[in-house]
Amino acid sequence: MKRKGYLEIIRLSKEYGEVKALREVKLTVPQGQWLTVMGPSGSGKTTLLSLIAGLIKPTRGKVKIGGVDIFSLSDNQLLQFRREKIGLIFQQHHLIPYLTALENVMLAQFIHSLPDEAEAIDSLIKVGLADKINRYPRELSGGEQQRVCIARALINNPGLLLADEPTGNLDRKNSELVLNLLSKLHQESNFTIVLVTHDPWVARWGERIVQLEDGKVVDDFLVQKSRGRKR
């Protein structure tokens, strides 16, 4: 029996000239699932994520989110879709350096609709940065920056959170902090997560792991709950 998922990837291919980054990837992710995409360097993980976010166009294939084929949308519709339905977390923290933590979060609100300071402060408190809301990114540690990014990605209540190596630049302790935070928020609001990593230790936080190799899905399995959650 085929279950209709929240995120559906249908025969998705991406070629950069000769390089075939993705080959006919098929994937269905149900609502609220935490999917981890693993694979060696150059296997096409980032490419897959960019496609899901609509940042680049595929060579062939479709991506459906909540039943909407995102590449059939017009540019502006796609942007609106991304604003409202997708949250992004990057390996590099990509905060705007001359805005404070609070302002960075408010910027996302502003792009979405209107800035709301109280709501932004709440979200920063939720990620445990209550006393650092007015700091500039350079005055925050890597882990703290990544938590600002989480707050920013989730501020507009997206249905889908995409994270590319969110812990790539962090040490174990900070990574754990960030991942625990993410799983707490995930349990609270039940959004779908697609998280890319090459670190099996990080993958244990997810519910399902997809192994990507040379642009193809080679493995796809659920994580045992007992093993995953508490380290």
């Binding site: 604003r83 705007i96 996302a108």
Partner: peptide, 9 residues
């Protein structure tokens, strides 16, 4: 690029 990724038109 970041603004665009965040959905700014």
């Amino acid at each position: 690029a970041l603004l665009k990724a965040l959905g700014a038109s």
